[in-house]
Design a protein around this nucleic acid. Structure first.
Lengths: 204, 204
DNA sequence: ATAGAAAGCGGACTGCGGTCCGTTTAGTAT
DNA sequence: ATACTAAACGGACCGCAGTCCGCTTTCTAT
């Protein structure tokens, strides 16, 4: 059995920091707390780094030292939920986790992701929007890798590229906007996903 | 035969402007010219609205009056090329235009779009990035509609949603980054697209 | 306890997209 | 020609993400 380490969901600085100074720890807590309050009250979209610094009674530089960027902050805020989902599709029970066929797992993965996105949509959109190459969101990379493996098992010719296509088809911005802006029901999205996977993976 | 009007690629103000004032026309020309020079020299990514205003010897307000936003400017810059591609898949010869089977047309459409994106990648990325809901890029809407029609002809259950999935899979940012950042060859992209379409549309 | 070094801090500053509004100018009606 | 009006103009201004750098705090070694 391999020693698996989770993808760090927040790029929270060069791993293995020897010791976090006490003032740094205190400020990080203050910032996360303030950020959660602001998101709850006004939504992730509306959160500005200045407002956060102000609310947490901290200098703006400190905010960026902690999180690197707005996207980094959003990823940190997401990390608990993402970790749960990661665990579920990597180690959880089938059909999401190992034990089911690739097609079943991929179907379950997409459905899970759609619901996950709908619950954490604002955060995910904000995390993706604020980043060059939304693909450099670590969770997205892992997602891609997972789909790639399943597609390979199913005998797809170029699983890497096809996984990329599917990654983009599950883009948070797309899902959130389909549901909230264009009025598509989540059920239509998951049904269509089932259909896509079934068609892609059924034997010739 | 229907009277078909092209989707206006630049939201270049409330259609049917009665008369464009001569100074406005002059400035529009100056702006487009300056914009093209800046893009040629430094790339679309690097074009700033201030620099454009300055180079065109025009106030910044004028730039935004003309084009509405950075995205609007990019769309205007793209409009010739986009129109050609639109014409090709709507009225041109098969397999891109009418006359071939839906599967063939969809395959050709994706391939065409991939090459189109690779030629005009910077502009497209800039146009899409600068817009909330990249779906409100008019050309994207038309693209979606085209794919929806083809999918419906092929008997797909929810062509609207599936077309949306495919739209995102052909996202300019995705394609450009796959090729330029992640080193995927265009051929792998088009091959994978062929594969996806073949699998999606082959009869049960 | 104390001194030195490194990590952390804060907020002024930059650059950008986009808005606002008082001023100018092109067309039109007389 | 003249006066009037609506359109166009320009650039100061705003809010935001992200950077910079001189100052402060915490930890460590003695």
């Amino acid at each position: 059995m391999f020693l698996v380490s989770f993808v760090p969901l927040q790029p929270d600085l060069p791993l293995g920091s020897p010791h976090e100074r006490s003032d740094a720890a205190r400020n990080r807590e203050r910032l996360l707390c303030a950020a959660r309050e602001l998101v709850d009250e006004f939504g992730a979209e509306a959160l500005t780094m200045d407002a956060l610094a102000c609310k947490a009674k901290v200098g703006k530089g400190t905010v960026f030292r902690r999180f690197g960027s707005r996207a980094g902050l959003m990823m940190t805020l997401l990390s608990d939920a993402e970790s749960d989902f990661q665990r579920a599709f990597m180690f959880g029970p089938p059909p999401l986790g190992p034990g089911a066929s690739p097609a079943e797992r991929l179907t379950a993965f997409g459905e899970g992701r759609i619901y996950f996105v709908l619950e954490n949509g604002e955060l995910l959109k904000a995390a993706g929007a604020a980043t060059r190459n939304r693909f450099d969101v670590p969770a997205t990379k892992l997602s891609h890798r997972h789909m790639e493996v399943l597609l390979r098992e199913a005998g797809i010719a170029d699983p890497w590229v096809m996984a990329m296509s599917l990654t983009y088809a599950l883009d948070p911005e797309r899902i959130v906007d389909d549901v909230r802006v264009r009025g598509i029901s989540p059920k239509r999205l998951t049904d269509s996903w089932r259909d896509v996977v079934a068609r892609l993976m059924r034997p010739a």
